[in-house]
Protein backbone atom coordinates (compact mmCIF):
# COMPACT_ATOMS: atom_id res chain seq x y z
CA UNK A 1 0.00 0.00 0.00
CA UNK A 2 2.62 2.51 1.14
CA UNK A 3 5.02 1.59 -1.60
CA UNK A 4 2.33 2.16 -4.18
CA UNK A 5 1.63 5.61 -2.87
CA UNK A 6 5.23 6.79 -2.96
CA UNK A 7 5.45 5.33 -6.42
CA UNK A 8 2.54 7.39 -7.66
CA UNK A 9 3.95 10.47 -5.99
CA UNK A 10 7.21 9.92 -7.76
CA UNK A 11 5.37 9.51 -11.03
CA UNK A 12 3.47 12.74 -10.34
CA UNK A 13 6.71 14.52 -9.68
CA UNK A 14 8.23 13.22 -12.87
CA UNK A 15 5.25 14.32 -14.92
CA UNK A 16 5.43 17.73 -13.23
CA UNK A 17 9.11 18.05 -14.04
CA UNK A 18 8.51 16.96 -17.62
CA UNK A 19 5.95 19.73 -18.00
CA UNK A 20 8.35 22.20 -16.42
CA UNK A 21 11.13 21.22 -18.81
CA UNK A 22 8.77 21.46 -21.78
CA UNK A 23 7.73 24.95 -20.68
CA UNK A 24 11.32 26.02 -20.16
CA UNK A 25 12.40 24.74 -23.56
CA UNK A 26 9.47 26.52 -25.21
CA UNK A 27 10.35 29.74 -23.37
CA UNK A 28 13.99 29.43 -24.41
CA UNK A 29 13.00 29.00 -28.06
CA UNK A 30 10.74 32.06 -27.96
CA UNK A 31 13.39 34.14 -26.24
CA UNK A 32 16.26 33.08 -28.48
CA UNK A 33 14.39 33.06 -31.78
CA UNK A 34 14.78 36.78 -32.60
CA UNK A 35 18.49 36.67 -31.87
CA UNK A 36 18.92 33.55 -33.95
CA UNK A 37 17.07 35.29 -36.78
CA UNK A 38 19.17 38.40 -36.39
CA UNK A 39 22.41 36.45 -36.68
CA UNK A 40 21.21 34.47 -39.70
CA UNK A 41 19.93 37.52 -41.57
CA UNK A 42 23.22 39.30 -41.04
CA UNK A 43 24.90 36.65 -43.21
CA UNK A 44 22.45 37.07 -46.09
CA UNK A 45 23.96 39.04 -48.94
CA UNK A 46 22.19 42.16 -50.21
CA UNK A 47 23.83 41.76 -53.60
CA UNK A 48 20.99 40.85 -56.02
CA UNK A 49 23.38 38.60 -57.95
CA UNK A 50 23.72 36.42 -54.86
CA UNK A 51 20.48 36.77 -52.95
CA UNK A 52 17.59 39.16 -52.39
CA UNK A 53 18.52 41.58 -49.59
CA UNK A 54 15.09 42.67 -48.40
CA UNK A 55 12.46 40.95 -46.31
CA UNK A 56 12.14 37.24 -47.00
CA UNK A 57 10.05 34.42 -45.55
CA UNK A 58 12.88 32.11 -44.50
CA UNK A 59 15.48 32.35 -41.75
CA UNK A 60 18.54 30.50 -42.93
CA UNK A 61 20.14 32.28 -45.89
CA UNK A 62 20.63 30.26 -49.06
CA UNK A 63 24.18 31.49 -49.44
CA UNK A 64 26.18 32.55 -46.44
CA UNK A 65 28.13 35.69 -47.22
CA UNK A 66 30.01 38.40 -45.38
CA UNK A 67 28.83 41.16 -47.73
CA UNK A 68 27.04 43.07 -44.95
CA UNK A 69 30.08 43.11 -42.72
CA UNK A 70 32.29 44.06 -45.64
CA UNK A 71 29.93 46.95 -46.32
CA UNK A 72 30.15 48.18 -42.73
CA UNK A 73 33.94 48.25 -42.81
CA UNK A 74 34.21 49.58 -46.37
CA UNK A 75 33.81 53.22 -45.42
CA UNK A 76 30.75 53.73 -47.63
CA UNK A 77 28.98 54.96 -44.51
CA UNK A 78 30.28 56.41 -41.28
CA UNK A 79 29.45 53.21 -39.40
CA UNK A 80 32.90 52.87 -37.84
CA UNK A 81 32.78 56.50 -36.82
CA UNK A 82 29.37 56.02 -35.19
CA UNK A 83 30.69 52.97 -33.39
CA UNK A 84 33.69 54.91 -32.12
CA UNK A 85 31.45 57.77 -31.01
CA UNK A 86 29.21 55.46 -29.03
CA UNK A 87 32.21 53.78 -27.45
CA UNK A 88 33.69 57.11 -26.37
CA UNK A 89 30.36 58.32 -25.00
CA UNK A 90 29.75 55.06 -23.16
CA UNK A 91 33.19 55.05 -21.52
CA UNK A 92 33.08 58.70 -20.46
CA UNK A 93 29.52 58.47 -19.18
CA UNK A 94 30.26 55.28 -17.26
CA UNK A 95 33.26 56.78 -15.47
CA UNK A 96 31.88 60.26 -14.75
CA UNK A 97 28.39 59.09 -13.84
CA UNK A 98 29.75 56.52 -11.40
CA UNK A 99 31.90 59.15 -9.68
CA UNK A 100 28.97 61.55 -9.34
CA UNK A 101 26.58 58.89 -8.07
CA UNK A 102 29.14 57.72 -5.51
CA UNK A 103 29.64 61.29 -4.25
CA UNK A 104 25.92 61.99 -3.97
CA UNK A 105 25.16 58.65 -2.36
CA UNK A 106 27.87 59.06 0.25
CA UNK A 107 26.74 62.56 1.15
CA UNK A 108 23.09 61.50 1.44
CA UNK A 109 23.78 58.23 3.23
CA UNK A 110 26.48 59.24 5.70
CA UNK A 111 26.28 62.96 6.31
CA UNK A 112 23.45 64.74 8.09
CA UNK A 113 23.07 68.31 6.93
CA UNK A 114 20.41 70.97 6.76
CA UNK A 115 17.97 70.43 3.92
CA UNK A 116 18.94 66.81 3.29
CA UNK A 117 15.42 65.38 3.19
CA UNK A 118 14.22 68.48 1.36
CA UNK A 119 16.81 67.87 -1.36
CA UNK A 120 15.84 64.21 -1.69
CA UNK A 121 12.15 65.03 -1.92
CA UNK A 122 12.80 67.78 -4.44
CA UNK A 123 14.75 65.41 -6.67
CA UNK A 124 12.01 62.80 -6.36
CA UNK A 125 9.46 65.32 -7.64
CA UNK A 126 11.80 66.43 -10.43
CA UNK A 127 12.03 62.82 -11.57
CA UNK A 128 8.29 62.79 -12.21
CA UNK A 129 8.62 65.14 -15.17
CA UNK A 130 8.93 63.28 -18.45
CA UNK A 131 12.51 63.24 -19.67
CA UNK A 132 11.95 64.59 -23.17
CA UNK A 133 10.03 67.62 -21.99
CA UNK A 134 13.22 69.61 -21.77
CA UNK A 135 14.59 68.55 -25.14
CA UNK A 136 14.45 71.94 -26.88
CA UNK A 137 15.74 73.78 -23.88
CA UNK A 138 18.73 71.48 -23.53
CA UNK A 139 19.42 71.82 -27.24
CA UNK A 140 19.57 75.60 -27.03
CA UNK A 141 21.58 75.49 -23.82
CA UNK A 142 24.18 73.28 -25.51
CA UNK A 143 24.09 75.42 -28.63
CA UNK A 144 25.16 78.40 -26.56
CA UNK A 145 28.38 76.53 -25.82
CA UNK A 146 28.79 75.13 -29.34
CA UNK A 147 28.08 71.60 -28.16
CA UNK A 148 25.60 70.58 -30.85
CA UNK A 149 26.07 69.10 -34.33
CA UNK A 150 29.88 68.97 -34.72
CA UNK A 151 30.35 69.17 -30.94
CA UNK A 152 27.54 66.78 -30.16
CA UNK A 153 29.69 64.14 -28.50
CA UNK A 154 30.97 66.21 -25.56
CA UNK A 155 27.48 67.74 -25.49
CA UNK A 156 25.82 64.35 -25.11
CA UNK A 157 28.29 63.33 -22.42
CA UNK A 158 27.61 66.56 -20.55
CA UNK A 159 23.83 66.10 -20.69
CA UNK A 160 24.00 62.47 -19.59
CA UNK A 161 26.37 63.18 -16.73
CA UNK A 162 25.02 66.51 -15.49
CA UNK A 163 21.75 65.18 -14.10
CA UNK A 164 22.98 61.76 -13.07
CA UNK A 165 23.11 62.72 -9.41
CA UNK A 166 19.39 62.07 -9.20
CA UNK A 167 19.93 58.35 -9.82
CA UNK A 168 21.46 57.69 -6.43
CA UNK A 169 18.78 55.36 -4.98
CA UNK A 170 20.39 51.95 -5.50
CA UNK A 171 23.85 53.12 -4.50
CA UNK A 172 22.65 54.95 -1.40
CA UNK A 173 20.67 51.88 -0.41
CA UNK A 174 23.90 49.91 -0.56
CA UNK A 175 25.85 52.47 1.46
CA UNK A 176 23.14 52.38 4.12
CA UNK A 177 23.93 48.71 4.69
CA UNK A 178 27.62 49.37 5.45
CA UNK A 179 27.77 49.58 9.25
CA UNK A 180 28.17 53.12 10.55
CA UNK A 181 30.41 51.72 13.31
CA UNK A 182 33.20 51.36 10.75
CA UNK A 183 33.06 55.09 9.98
CA UNK A 184 33.00 55.95 13.66
CA UNK A 185 36.01 53.78 14.39
CA UNK A 186 37.95 55.44 11.58
CA UNK A 187 36.92 58.87 12.83
CA UNK A 188 38.21 58.09 16.30
CA UNK A 189 41.52 57.22 14.65
CA UNK A 190 41.52 60.75 13.25
CA UNK A 191 40.53 60.09 9.65
CA UNK A 192 38.67 62.88 7.89
CA UNK A 193 35.39 62.32 6.06
CA UNK A 194 37.13 62.50 2.69
CA UNK A 195 39.64 59.87 3.77
CA UNK A 196 36.90 57.56 5.07
CA UNK A 197 35.05 57.92 1.78
CA UNK A 198 38.07 57.11 -0.36
CA UNK A 199 39.81 54.49 1.76
CA UNK A 200 36.93 52.78 3.53
CA UNK A 201 33.62 53.18 1.71
CA UNK A 202 34.72 53.01 -1.92
CA UNK A 203 36.73 49.79 -1.61
CA UNK A 204 33.84 48.17 0.29
CA UNK A 205 31.41 49.04 -2.49
CA UNK A 206 32.95 47.19 -5.41
CA UNK A 207 29.72 45.39 -6.41
CA UNK A 208 27.65 48.54 -6.50
CA UNK A 209 30.35 50.47 -8.35
CA UNK A 210 30.45 47.80 -11.04
CA UNK A 211 26.65 47.79 -11.24
CA UNK A 212 26.45 51.57 -11.57
CA UNK A 213 29.18 51.69 -14.20
CA UNK A 214 27.65 48.80 -16.15
CA UNK A 215 24.21 50.40 -16.30
CA UNK A 216 25.75 53.74 -17.27
CA UNK A 217 27.85 52.06 -19.94
CA UNK A 218 24.91 50.29 -21.54
CA UNK A 219 22.53 53.23 -21.72
CA UNK A 220 24.30 55.22 -24.51
CA UNK A 221 24.01 52.24 -26.90
CA UNK A 222 20.24 52.68 -26.89
CA UNK A 223 20.16 56.44 -26.66
CA UNK A 224 18.27 57.56 -29.69
CA UNK A 225 16.20 60.61 -28.80
CA UNK A 226 18.80 62.85 -27.19
CA UNK A 227 21.52 61.79 -29.61
CA UNK A 228 19.51 62.42 -32.76
CA UNK A 229 18.26 65.77 -31.52
CA UNK A 230 21.64 67.10 -30.46
CA UNK A 231 23.58 65.76 -33.46
CA UNK A 232 20.72 66.94 -35.72
CA UNK A 233 21.70 66.11 -39.28
CA UNK A 234 25.45 66.03 -38.68
CA UNK A 235 26.27 62.50 -39.77
CA UNK A 236 29.72 62.32 -38.19
CA UNK A 237 28.36 62.95 -34.71
CA UNK A 238 25.78 60.17 -34.77
CA UNK A 239 25.92 57.23 -32.46
CA UNK A 240 25.08 53.73 -33.69
CA UNK A 241 21.43 53.91 -32.73
CA UNK A 242 20.82 57.16 -34.60
CA UNK A 243 22.88 56.14 -37.60
CA UNK A 244 21.39 52.71 -38.03
CA UNK A 245 17.72 53.29 -37.30
CA UNK A 246 17.49 55.00 -40.68
CA UNK A 247 18.38 51.71 -42.32
CA UNK A 248 15.22 50.20 -40.91
CA UNK A 249 12.85 53.13 -41.20
CA UNK A 250 13.91 54.43 -44.59
CA UNK A 251 11.69 53.58 -47.56
CA UNK A 252 14.66 51.82 -49.07
CA UNK A 253 14.92 49.44 -46.14
CA UNK A 254 14.64 46.53 -48.58
CA UNK A 255 18.27 47.01 -49.45
CA UNK A 256 19.41 47.89 -45.96
CA UNK A 257 17.68 45.46 -43.67
CA UNK A 258 20.44 42.85 -43.70
CA UNK A 259 23.03 45.57 -43.23
CA UNK A 260 21.15 46.71 -40.14
CA UNK A 261 21.25 43.15 -38.83
CA UNK A 262 25.00 42.93 -39.31
CA UNK A 263 25.54 46.31 -37.67
CA UNK A 264 23.28 45.27 -34.82
CA UNK A 265 25.26 42.09 -34.26
CA UNK A 266 28.50 44.04 -34.05
CA UNK A 267 26.93 46.25 -31.39
CA UNK A 268 25.16 43.51 -29.48
CA UNK A 269 27.97 40.97 -29.21
CA UNK A 270 30.53 42.99 -27.18
CA UNK A 271 27.86 44.55 -24.98
CA UNK A 272 26.26 41.18 -24.31
CA UNK A 273 29.59 39.54 -23.49
CA UNK A 274 30.46 42.34 -21.08
CA UNK A 275 27.05 42.03 -19.48
CA UNK A 276 27.32 38.29 -19.08
CA UNK A 277 30.67 38.68 -17.35
CA UNK A 278 29.26 41.17 -14.87
CA UNK A 279 25.82 39.59 -14.59
CA UNK A 280 26.32 38.74 -10.92
CA UNK A 281 26.74 42.39 -10.00
CA UNK A 282 23.81 43.43 -12.14
CA UNK A 283 21.48 40.98 -10.42
CA UNK A 284 22.69 42.15 -7.02
CA UNK A 285 22.08 45.80 -7.86
CA UNK A 286 18.70 45.25 -9.46
CA UNK A 287 17.39 43.08 -6.63
CA UNK A 288 18.66 45.46 -3.97
CA UNK A 289 17.11 48.41 -5.76
CA UNK A 290 13.76 46.69 -6.15
CA UNK A 291 13.42 45.85 -2.49
CA UNK A 292 14.46 49.30 -1.31
CA UNK A 293 12.08 50.83 -3.85
Amino acid sequence: MEKQQTGSMKRNKMIGNAFAYAALILISIIWLFPFFGLIMQSFRSYDPKVEYGGMVDYIIPKHFSLDNYRFLFSGETNYLRWYGNTLIIAFCVAILQTIIILCVSYALSRMRFKGRTLLMRFWLVLGMFPGFLTLICLYFLLKQFGLTQAGAIPGLILVSVASSGMGYYVCKGYFDTIPAALDEAAMIDGASRAKIFLILTVPLSKPIIIYTALVAFMAPWCDFVMASYIAFGYDKSYNVAVGMQRWVWTNDYQGYFTRFCAGGILVAVPVTILFMFLQKYYVEGVTGGAVKG
Binding site: I100, C103, V104, Y106, A107, M111, F113, L119, W123, L126, F129, L133, T134, C137, L138, L141, L158, V159, V161, A162, S163, S164, G165, M166, S192, R193, A194, K195, F197
Partner: peptide
Amino acid sequence: LDGNFDKTLLALPVLGIFLFTVLPIMF
Protein backbone atom coordinates in the same frame (compact mmCIF):
# COMPACT_ATOMS: atom_id res chain seq x y z
CA LEU B 1 37.05 67.62 3.42
CA ASP B 2 35.66 66.71 6.83
CA GLY B 3 32.74 68.32 8.63
CA ASN B 4 31.51 70.07 5.51
CA PHE B 5 32.45 67.26 3.13
CA ASP B 6 28.82 67.02 2.00
CA LYS B 7 29.10 70.47 0.44
CA THR B 8 32.17 69.43 -1.54
CA LEU B 9 30.50 66.24 -2.71
CA LEU B 10 27.19 67.79 -3.65
CA ALA B 11 28.35 71.07 -5.18
CA LEU B 12 28.93 69.78 -8.70
CA PRO B 13 25.95 67.38 -8.89
CA VAL B 14 23.56 70.02 -7.57
CA LEU B 15 24.88 72.58 -10.04
CA GLY B 16 24.54 70.08 -12.90
CA ILE B 17 21.00 69.18 -11.92
CA PHE B 18 20.10 72.83 -11.61
CA LEU B 19 21.44 73.79 -15.04
CA PHE B 20 20.31 70.72 -16.98
CA THR B 21 17.13 69.69 -15.19
CA VAL B 22 15.67 72.35 -12.91
CA LEU B 23 16.20 75.34 -15.19
CA PRO B 24 14.92 73.54 -18.33
CA ILE B 25 11.85 72.28 -16.46
CA MET B 26 11.10 75.78 -15.16
CA PHE B 27 11.55 77.02 -18.69
